[in-house]
């Protein structure tokens, strides 16, 4: 899939997931996020199939807490719930993005993992940054050729 299409796929996935699961919306692209290689929180899901790769998400603290609060319907989400939410968010975004790769071929997803703030600048990845209510959400799709 061309890089431009992957961008569009990530944009669609983020808009759809935030709207339906977080009762929130993307406010627009975040121009300043590219200068920030690390955000406060990260989660990743690996996928394998016709191609192999990962979808890594990064979120600043305010953005993560805001989305988690909307998802859970509670303003006082615990640390564990915010982390669990980010893992689920990565899972849903990865699922939505890989379903568009190679016409939605045969892919399987790994277990979503919360990871230490991860570099969002890996070579070969497609990164999209979004301004969300109160914060920033970044998504990095990394593809590698299957062995």
């Amino acid at each position: 899939m061309p890089e431009q299409d992957l961008h569009a796929s990530i944009n669609d996935a983020v808009e759809q997931v935030l709207e339906t699961m977080c009762f929130s919306a993307v406010l627009g692209p975040c121009e300043t996020a590219q200068a920030q290689p690390f955000l406060d929180r990260s989660a990743v899901v690996d996928y394998s199939g016709a191609s192999v790769g990962s979808v890594l998400i990064g979120c600043d603290e305010a953005g993560a807490r805001g989305l988690a609060a909307n998802f859970l319907g509670s303003e006082d989400a615990s640390e564990e719930q915010v982390s669990g939410f980010l893992a689920e968010l990565a899972n849903m975004l990865c699922g939505a993005v890989v379903s568009t790769l190679n016409g939605g071929g045969n892919y399987s997803l790994g277990t979503p993992r919360v990871v230490p703030p991860a570099a969002l600048t890996e070579t070969g990845g497609v990164r999209c940054d979004f301004e969300i209510d109160g914060g920033i959400l970044s998504v990095l799709a990394l593809r590698r050729e299957a062995a």
């Binding site: 998802f71 859970l72 319907g73 719930q81 669990g84």
Partner: peptide
């Protein structure tokens, strides 16, 4: 297996 997803579904 995700407690937050169970919470979301209940909501």
């Amino acid at each position: 297996d995700s407690p937050v997803m169970r919470t979301f579904i209940k909501r």
